[in-house]
């Protein structure tokens, strides 16, 4: 479904990604793990078209999307739930969700999608007339995921969805990610919470200094000695 082929990304003269390749197949949850500054978010930003790699290619459903704008990439069915949520604080929850579905089928089916999102996150239904800026961190994260789902994506990019959440919310957030996946959305998950994200994913990639250093099935990676030592402290 998604093929990232040896992309190199620079900020000015500084090279952030040194040839990253990865693949996401239909129906999977794929985890991208690594420490701060390893290039996880940069990879995600390249896929959603907010930055463009200097070298390498990104393909989605067989089409090259390397140089497309975020506008076109959303249209093709990739939705990005960014780190830090990037909501519209002075818009209501309802308006935030509406802004996730701006064109075509997604716009026509706004109501239907919204009902599904309110099933996933019932609290948002109660809060729908509130300004997004007044919500708690956990609720804002729900709005961010909901907004991402509004475009009816086939691939959802989740960047640090559990960051800044109270521990009690983290587990339920993972249950919901799992649920979104079983209902048909493929997910590429970026996380610092290595244990959690490796336990729900099908496959995982470990990034270090802008390169993939390990990849494999989630459970295998969890058993990997290096990962245990470096990321899980065992």
């Amino acid at each position: 479904m998604l093929r990232v082929n040896d992309i190199q990304v620079f900020y000015g003269e500084m090279q952030i990604l040194r040839g990253i390749s990865l693949e996401v197949n239909q129906g999977e949850i794929v985890s991208l793990i690594g420490s701060n500054g390893a290039g996880k978010s940069t990879t995600i930003l390249s896929i959603s078209g907010l930055i463009h790699p200097r070298k390498g290619e990104i393909e989605f459903n067989g089409k090259k999307i390397t140089d497309l704008s975020p506008f076109d990439i959303v249209e093709m069915g990739i939705s990005h739930v960014p780190e830090g949520r990037q909501l519209f604080p002075s818009l209501t929850v309802l308006e935030n969700l509406e802004m996730g579905a701006l064109r075509g089928k997604a716009k026509r089916e706004r109501h239907k999608t919204m009902e599904w999102i309110f099933q996933l996150f019932p609290i948002l239904n109660e809060r729908k007339r509130q300004f997004a800026g007044t919500l708690s961190g956990g609720e804002q994260q729900m709005v961010a995921i909901g907004r991402g789902l509004m475009s009816i994506p086939s691939l959802l990019l989740l960047d640090e969805p559990s960051l800044g959440l109270a521990p009690i919310f983290v587990s339920s957030m993972y249950d919901i990610i799992k649920k979104i996946n079983t209902e048909g959305t493929t997910i590429l998950l970026v996380e610092q919470n290595v244990f959690k994200s490796l336990s729900i994913c099908n496959r995982g990639y470990v990034l270090e200094n802008g390169a993939v250093t390990l990849k494999g099935i989630g459970e295998d990676l969890l058993q990997n000695k290096l990962i245990k030592k470096v990321y899980l402290g065992m």
Binding site: S48, P70, I73, V74, P82, F88, L91, E95
Partner: peptide, 15 residues
């Protein structure tokens, strides 16, 4: 209003 609130967020949703 969305673009005024958060430019990055607006780009991400495809505005």
């Amino acid at each position: 209003r969305a673009a005024a609130d958060n430019r990055l967020g607006a780009q991400i949703v495809g505005i």
